[in-house]
Amino acid sequence: MNNRLRLLRAERGWSQAELAGRIDVSRQAVNAIETGKHDPSLSLAFRIAREFRLPIEQVFDGGEA
């Protein structure tokens, strides 16, 4: 699954730790999602999209990484 996490995070000037704290996961989890090593569950994906105030399809798409 592709995602725009790194780009969206950079636009807001957030570190991985900042995003991790906001969505209540570890920094390693944010890194794993960004690098495509972990596909988040639906509830976590919605939580990430909500944090960026974007629809989920603007953060994630179903294509293979």
Binding site: A17, G21, D24, V25, S43, R47
Partner: peptide
């Protein structure tokens, strides 16, 4: 699946991570 716990939204993400 990644439970969302009650963290203080007035804190920065990095403080919440700590």
């Amino acid at each position: 699946n990644s439970p969302e716990t009650n963290t203080n939204p007035s804190l920065s993400g990095e403080d919440r991570l700590r």
